[in-house]
Design a protein around this nucleic acid. Sequence first.
RNA 1: UCCGGCGUAGCUCAAUGGUAGAGCGGGUGACUGUUAAUCACUAGGUUGUAGGUUCGAGCCCUACCGCCGGAGCCA
Length: 499
Amino acid sequence: MEPMVEIKALSAHAGAAVTLQGWLYGKRSGGKVAFLLVRDGTGLCQCVVEAEAADAFARANELAQESSLQVTGTVRKDERAPGGYELLVTAVRPIQIAKDYPITRKAHGVDFLMNHRHLWFRTPRQTAILRVRHRLIRSMRAFFDDRGFTLVDTPILSPGAAEGAGTLFPVDFFDEQVYLAQTGQLYLEAAAMALGKVYCFGPTFRAEKSKTRRHLAEFWMIEPEIAFAELPDLAELAEAFITHLVGDILTHCRAELETLERDMAPLERIAPPFPRLTYSEAVDLLHSGEVHERLLSELERDRACLKQWQADLGRAEEERAAAKKGWRQDKLDRQILELRENIRELDVDLRNRPGHIENARHFAWGNDLGGDEETILSRHFDKPVIITEYPKDVKAFYMKPKPDDPRVVLNLDVIAPEGYGEIIGGSQREDDFDALIARMEQEQMDRAPYEWYLDLRRYGSVPHGGFGLGVERTVAWICGLRHIRETIPFPRMMGRMTP
RNA sequence: UCCGGCGUAGCUCAAUGGUAGAGCGGGUGACUGUUAAUCACUAGGUUGUAGGUUCGAGCCCUACCGCCGGAGCCA
């Protein structure tokens, strides 16, 4: 038999007879010629079956969308073929004939697609996202591996613990109530005292009842932890880390980003130094006339934009009504759907916006920065923003207060550009035994389960810290996705457990 | 938990309170270098559920269920 070839390698076999195996992505057929669009996970290839190849032609006509098959033929360069190469078919071998494949090559709604997630990710857009995710994870691990970090796996089952117990998933562990981990951090601190620089990478679980485009109940997080590191070291590491990730995706996943129609210009700008401001400076910025003016002018601009879109929609609908059947109508349908969705979204946004602007202007020092504030701050810059030194009261017990201003802690958040929200959260940890237990008492925490953790402060405590980066939010940002649910093969979120 | 929006054919959507429709997909046939092909024919419905108002409800009212995304919380 002819050599089995992957579609991505077709160009190296021009003129040769080869066999492809894969699935039928689409088909156009007629009396004298059939075009099979075959995908194999590495690419798409148009396979031309002419009626003279009678057996192949007959079999080609039996195939429906997503049937599995092998096709043999001669590779040839052709301008008209997507990808530039096509296969002139001599034999078609169906493996299994699919019937009534539910996802057609037309528009579908989110709920329908989510219910068919197991099939949905066969489409070019979804496979592009999954490839970016893969490359991103590989880049993340390479970044730490190349800098002398050791991967340490932390447990997924963890004893209750006090911190935000309300947001954990309870699990029955031999009649004992334990929880799914929401971070590996405490264990990682122990590992850092053994190995110096460590990281963990794994799933993490949050039972927050959040149904937004930024939330998953189960997501993946990579967390470095470093002995002898202070807040500025962490900020520098986070900056280098993100720069590395974006650069790596831009070099290795251009085709995928093009498939996703991601505007790459904002990504090309990602380079050190990132803007850094303290929480207090961020609050001042929110209060500033400069920001207020900008928000108001953006509001005006977006209102004009809404009107423009509504006009576009009206025009498209008129044109749709007048259009003849066929691809022209099809294209208009797509435009209309997209416009409607954008309009609905912007309309809601515009109605909420004046309130947000007022909230920002009167934001009180001491509150945690919410999604709106983050968005406002991130829109003020065109790179990720590092915000440090939040009020102690809104942060976790293990964060080290700033020596000369104990109202705040030595923490950092990194806010992604373009409104994608917080992608990194971390801190320098409290390394002093007495200060740590004082804080735990303040929070009325039960000390017993933490004795092992306190040992780290008893035996050779050193300044240290780390952060966690959310994989899915980072994928969503880099790919420019509207929703985080597309960034993970099988999303787990409130109200969604299948498939 | 709160706020807002939406539930009509397998899918995406139409339908002044007055005979439930289109496109796609499925089926049958025709046609051919097609690009989410095209043309003709065809099958396909308890309008989310339960009440109510009305001569008459897909449309109005009430409750519930489901979905969407925003707040809170967070990566």
